[in-house]
Amino acid sequence: MVNTTDLDLTNSGVEAPTYRTSVVVTPATSGLADGGGGVALVDRGDHTKLMLRCDAGSAAAAALGVSFGSSRITDSGVVITGLRPDEYWLIGTAESVTGERAGLPADGLRSEVDLTHGRTLIEVSGPKATGMLEKVCGLDFSDAMTPRGAATSASVAKVSCDIVRAGDSYLVACDRSFGQYLMESLADAAREFGLTLGD
């Protein structure tokens, strides 16, 4: 073995890992937040995002209970959504997602990838949330075209995003590398409505 130095090699010198989301609240964004509350933006980067691929018509797909383009919220608070054909996402706290995953039958479950680290997740809520999204996204957010539970993908502020209308909020997810930009862009778009940052 090659580990021959004077340093302690038992890893005790290594600090415990610190998890960091992609979103750093900079003066540029916090300066826009007047607490007006028309739009609230919350970084949910610490939520677990588990992606599953299931065969259509399988027991696993049936247990997930959503079709492509829709979502539901489980009793444990996990958002289960069908973002693309055969592709499902479980979004929530680590514990609750683990619980929901454990309850799924194996039949039809093709693959899974934990994308917690790969996706920035921003929760957009408030009475003007739709108005803000209409500034940055070309989708029709009317109740008929994007009802509660709707799930889709679109360009948001020029970034490819997944969008889930979960309850009273929109969950907007993008590749982690765009996260900081997306938060800054959304905060700027929200400023005319009165912006609140964080819970």
Partner: peptide, 14 residues
């Protein structure tokens, strides 16, 4: 419109 161009940053960019 608003002057925003997407930027990708690695976790170490700061």
């Amino acid at each position: 419109g608003r002057i925003f161009e997407p930027v990708r940053r690695s976790p170490m960019q700061d």
